[in-house]
Design a binder for these strands. Sequence first.
DNA 1: GCCAACGTTGGC
DNA 2: GCCAACGTTGGC
Length: 163
Amino acid sequence: MSDCQFWLMKSEPETFSLEDLAARPGQTEPWDGIRNYQARNFLRDRMRVGDAVLFYHSNCPVPGVVGLAEVVSGAYPDPTAFDPESAYYDPKSDPENPRWMLVDVAYRGHLREPVSLKALRENADLAGLRILQKGNRLSITPVEKEEYDEIVRMGGGVEDRSP
DNA sequence: GCCAACGTTGGC
DNA sequence: GCCAACGTTGGC
């Protein structure tokens, strides 16, 4: 774990929440639907198995970090891009040369208390967080180890809330 | 629901 | 390659 990297990944809880991840068979889920090149490049070029993830709920009453996950696969083509039935279908993604990738992530617990966006903003040690910068909408962003540790500390540590 | 900020598309 | 139009994100 010493050389793993740290990430923050956003999800709208109405679409896919941390509770949904905890309830999945094997508590693992393909993180599909990424349709932004910068986020795709992070997935494809920099994410490694074992990397630690802050799970962030966006577009909801209290946005913030709610728990932890872990990258458990390398990047591979996102099958939803080839599925005309999928909301994420992209007719321009060629199966011979896939445009969109994903990784699998696994549940690693809830923070005892969610750390709200407001609380993140109020912590001067987190001023460098990418999601706090003006206009940043990236759904996958790298996080420093110190920032990750601080957010887990603010959340009162981690507990398993497997169903 | 509003709207600011950003990314993508496509005509030229 | 420019840039206007459009679509999306996501906080509030």
